[in-house]
Write a protein that binds this DNA or RNA. Structure first.
Lengths: 361, 361
DNA sequence: CTGTTAGCGCGTTCAA
DNA sequence: TTGAACGCGCTAACAG
């Protein structure tokens, strides 16, 4: 007869049956019961049956994952640091594919993905630092995110970043963003374009749209965006443009409207969008303004995704989004096994379409 | 001088500093150090400073979340059971909005979202059952998913489902799917349509596309899809159609091609798609086949989302996706606080567009 | 094959 | 204001 009045140390209202209770009822020791459940050690069929029977009678639902985690020193959870809240981040197909590859790969060790939006620390959102994660992957995050990671490194929790600054001191999966955009820029130059403008991805955690100024670039923290700008500058030094708030067609449309609604003499003849979705928006804007593509305006993108509902075949550069995530996942698995994986760098592939052509006379 | 050769019980290669170590170095007891860190108890500024200094010297990164979880009986993690792998699930904007609302709401208690794809149990993916979650939300899952949940219920872990069978014995957030589609069907009937066809969402975990047969319906496990079929049948008893594999425009297009590529006499004059994305695909198919909308074919959708790149204004029914997730989140918060929230049911709103009109003579 | 022992790292009593 | 003791629930050693 136990006293219900005295609450246990935890603040659970009722005490759930524990492995010890099951063991007691089955007339075996706790460790034997443990073995019977995990199937890891040598247990006679007889004993196992007794244990399982006792568990059934008590309504025992299996070992408590929390206790298992502490004991094993592993939670089976990988934190995925994403650049913004879910509703924003997951409208980007590249991010989705990357996470898909990541999830697939870590499922090899039975791990799951905990979503950690890289919000303001005092937004109420769970902090990376005090989440029970075995490792953390930064996917498409601004460099701001790295600041909060010292605590993790002190706990020697593996960290992998996808497309962050390579000198950040963490394992990096990178893509040849610069080279990819350079290919596109060279393609445009070969067509004789001289007035070119960029539509860039968000440059920082604030994600505000507006003209691409020197100040904004100086304060930028998103490596992928900066690398792509650099690739364009390799061919068109000093080229300017517009910063889009998100990788979405509406953001691309707004940026393009801003860039194209100027006197025709100064209007760009080609727009280099930093993503295919942005490029789709640029195409929409061009149509609204009565500009023919590619006769009046050439448009190129980045990513090589199939844009739902887009009729045209976009000139772009394909990148292996899924593979990036998978590589990050494999790196995590390696690091958790105590090994030191090699950094991975992916190439991109030029993909010609019908949205680019000779510069208008 | 400590012996490095003797490994600790866990299999960590190196021993990280613990709170006890910090306390020892600061010359206080572990409990005092705990108070100093959490800031919960009364600690003199003097002692706190000493503790923090010791922590800094040792490179202590704060309390171990795993130990905290066990002690508190909470991990701060909510499991989100999603219908398919990330790359598939997250192409559905409704799911994204729902998760966004959910994440936002549970951030109030500092909890995060663990993604649990409802895969085959032996797919290697982490099992809901042995993940360290405080609660689980089923979002858009097939009823198959419920089977794996007894273990959770035995551990008295709160479970909330969004749009599952209301008699499942778990807290349910529902939407008037049936009534919404009924509105659309009545709208079509008022226009004189008699030959109507459905394009439905996936009916089961297998997500295979094909004609909507009685057998398939009998084996269907996705409540939302079934409710929407029922709504259509309220007005058009026995109406048939095509099952799409996913809520995407390409799937809608394929379904529509199958339904429309028949002799004109038997061709439907209206198609009721179960999502706006499917409807967008139907519109694309109609255009390919040279059918004018709405003169030759009326098309209606469901969801009321803005479809990126879609010019037309779709006749549809709007549903509060974000609110569904938020309601689920609030329910979770309530249940974790020991209270019993009321089930929530949302209404939908008819939203006329220009894709529906009188039946052709 | 099974039981005993000993923690994992922390937070929360209670008494001083 | 601080310290000592205890246990959250489980599992990895070892011994029998």
């Amino acid at each position: 007869m136990k006293r219900q009045s005295m609450a246990p140390a935890g603040n659970r209202p009722e005490t759930r049956p524990t492995l010890a209770a099951v063991a007691a009822r089955a007339g075996v020791s706790a460790s034997t019961a443990s073995l019977a459940f995990s199937g890891r050690g040598p247990v006679s069929d007889d004993t196992r049956a007794k244990v399982l029977a006792a568990a059934a009678e008590l309504g025992y639902g299996g070992p408590d994952p929390l206790a298992q985690s502490l004991r094993r020193g592993r939670s089976g959870i990988i934190g995925a640091l994403i650049p913004a809240r879910i509703g924003v981040s997951f409208r980007d197909p590249v991010l989705i594919q990357t996470l898909d590859g990541l999830a697939e790969e870590i499922s090899a060790i039975g791990a799951g993905l905990l979503l950690l939006p890289d919000q303001d620390p005092d937004s109420g959102y769970v902090n990376v630092t005090d989440a029970p994660v075995d490792a953390v992957v930064l996917v498409g995050c601004s460099a701001d995110a790295l600041s909060a990671l010292d605590a993790l490194q002190r706990r020697s929790i593996p960290i992998v970043q996808i497309e962050g600054p390579v000198d950040a001191g963490v394992h990096t999966i990178s893509v040849d963003n610069r080279g990819g955009v350079r290919l596109l820029a060279e393609h445009l130059r070969a067509f004789g374009h001289t007035r070119v403008a960029l539509v860039t991805l968000a440059l920082d955690r604030a994600r505000t749209a507006g003209p691409l100024t020197a100040e904004r670039e100086a304060g930028a923290t998103v490596t992928a965006a900066l690398d792509r700008i650099a690739g364009a500058r390799d061919v068109y030094p000093g080229v300017g443009g517009w910063v889009a708030g998100a990788s979405r067609s509406d953001a691309g449309r707004e940026a393009a409207l801003a860039l194209l609604t100027v006197p025709p003499a100064g209007r760009p003849t080609a727009i280099l969008a930093q993503s295919d979705l942005l490029a789709a928006g640029v195409l929409a804007a061009a149509e609204e303004l009565g500009l023919r593509v590619p006769e009046d305006l050439s448009v190129v993108g980045f990513d090589g995704i199939r844009v739902d509902g887009l009729e045209r075949s976009l000139t772009t550069v394909w990148q292996p989004s899924q593979d990036k995530g998978a590589a990050a996942g494999r790196a995590i698995v390696e690091m958790l096994a105590g090994r030191s994986p090699e950094p991975v760098s992916f190439d991109v592939r030029f993909q010609p379409g019908d949205t680019s052509g000779p510069a208008p006379a």
